[in-house]
Amino acid sequence: MDTKTKNLLRGFGAALSNVIIKILIPMYIFRSVLQDTTIMEVDLGFTKAKVDIILFWLIAMGSISASLSFSKASSPKHSTRKAVFDIILILSNAFYLYLYRFSGALDIAVALDFGGATGMFYLNFENMVYISMGVITLNLIIGLYDFIISYAAPIEEEL
């Protein structure tokens, strides 16, 4: 198999795995499992309108992320363009995380209804995202370091 085909196959594999992980699985979870779910007498508050907003960001940023992962994975090892696509992919992942999680996916308004007694409480997991964002920023620093290495002091291919 020549290098061209190998690069393309690697790229399509990465893009496909991204589509499955970042779009299809969350889409299934929100649309088929969480939407209008009522466990016992507890309503999780994922209405159709709210799920539509979440899915918009999922599909929009997930598709960009998947195409960028194709470009990154199809680039040759230690090349400058791999480092550039890696940095753009990390930024795209940060946007994906921000838009998808802050679109209402982490706000859970739980409504309880036990016959005569009713109540409501509100769960917000958005603070958890800050740690993920911090990890993404660290990845960005590593990506920038890789870019500088690939540009200023390129690593020799293993023979």
Binding site: L8, G11, S63, I64, A66, S67, L68, S71, S75, S79
Partner: peptide, 23 residues
């Protein structure tokens, strides 16, 4: 967003086909 994704995908395919080896 689909157009942006398509641009990146097209660029990736073009670069993978045109420049498969690293300089």
């Amino acid at each position: 967003y689909f157009i942006v994704a398509g641009i990146f995908l097209g660029l990736g395919i073009f670069l993978a086909v045109k420049f498969p080896e690293r300089k």
